[in-house]
Amino acid sequence: MADDSAIRIDARGSFCPGPMMELIRAIKGASVGQVVVVLSNDSGSKRDIPLWSQKAGHEFLGVEEHGDYDEISVRKSH
């Protein structure tokens, strides 16, 4: 998922507002087609972000697990 134009957000340690809020904030500011990558150590992110992506109509690209955190990628579709 190496993408030079991707927006990377380090949301590790973010309980409030939380990784998914950070993702939504970034998606709103991104260009259509751009990828947003969120680093999260919140176990709920893996479950919530695919659900939200589907509901909001953005493309969920997947999760890379790195031991104590996950790297979650979403492409802005519209």
Partner: peptide
């Protein structure tokens, strides 16, 4: 709420 639950913090 923007997320799939009532607050961004799971315990809240």
């Amino acid at each position: 709420y923007p997320l799939g639950r009532a607050h961004s913090i799971q315990s809240v």
